[in-house]
């Protein structure tokens, strides 16, 4: 099924998507998307939605199951508080990508803005993944409480050159291609060596990500990564004293 979203407001657009899903459609293409927010907001099911254009903010917020493929850039916070499913963005994305994401995967081929993966969290079987092909701006993985962030830095000298990486991280891990200057680490973040074991554990994910963003995975299957983890799961426990 194909929808022409030219000039359409997001509420009727989402209504059409929801109706189609309810009637059993499993493949939707939306053309001429430009700035419509909240696409696939709170949507359940295993539908695949291809978005041609630039969706507005909060793409796939609260989404639980579907797959959204964006042929274009995306504005702020795709994957916001997302529960399950996949978002693949073939362009770049704005600030707060995967904000508070609880499960599923957000794959971005290009760069992302500030505070990517802020407060991603994991629980039980749910382990969210944010993978970025390009680079990111400051405060990547801020407050991160779980899940995995991977940044490959394709087309950039270093994967991340902005400050505050993993500031306040108390769960999960951040995997960055190459080495990262210590001064860029945020409070409570610790740099550890990326081992063969890590590679074995993560190579299926790296491979899948590369395939989804259409780059050759073989060049990324080595241990030339930096792994950033929490220094403690309670980084601020020592901050307070009782009256």
């Amino acid at each position: 099924m194909t929808i022409d979203a030219n000039g359409m407001h997001y509420t009727p657009l989402n209504k059409m998507i929801r109706q189609a899903v309810a009637s059993g459609v499993r493949e939707i293409v939306i053309d001429n998307v430009l700035g419509q927010r909240f696409i696939a907001n709170g949507l359940r099911s295993n539908v695949r939605i291809t978005i041609n254009g630039v969706p507005g903010g909060d793409l796939g917020m609260f989404m639980s199951g579907p797959e959204c493929i964006v042929r274009g850039d995306s504005e702020h916070a795709p994957g916001n508080t997302m529960d399950n499913g996949t978002i693949v963005i073939h362009g770049s994305a704005g600030d707060a990508v995967a904000h508070s994401m609880r499960g599923g995967r957000v794959f971005v081929r290009g760069d992302i803005g500030y505070r990517g993966g802020i407060h991603m969290k994991e629980y039980d079987q749910k382990r969210p993944v944010l993978a970025v092909g390009g680079t990111t701006h400051a405060f990547l993985g801020e407050y991160m409480a779980g899940g995995i962030i991977i940044v490959l830095g394709i087309g950039h000298e270093v994967a991340v050159k902005d400050r505050g990486i993993g500031s306040g991280i108390h769960g999960g891990e951040i995997i960055l291609r190459g080495d990262i200057e210590d001064r860029l680490l945020g409070v409570g973040a610790r740099k550890v060596i990326f081992t063969e074991d890590d590679l074995n554990r993560l190579s299926p994910l790296i491979t899948e990500f590369c395939e989804r963003i259409e780059v050759d995975p073989s060049q990324f299957l080595d241990t030339n990564y930096t792994r950033i983890i929490p220094a403690s799961s309670r980084p601020f426990a020592g901050k307070y004293t009782w009256e």
Binding site: F139, E142, R163, V187, G188, K239
Partner: peptide, 13 residues
């Protein structure tokens, strides 16, 4: 409240 975000001094400069 709302119109501007407070800043977390431990995590941001």
């Amino acid at each position: 409240q709302v119109t501007n975000p407070s800043i977390d001094p431990l995590r941001e400069p």
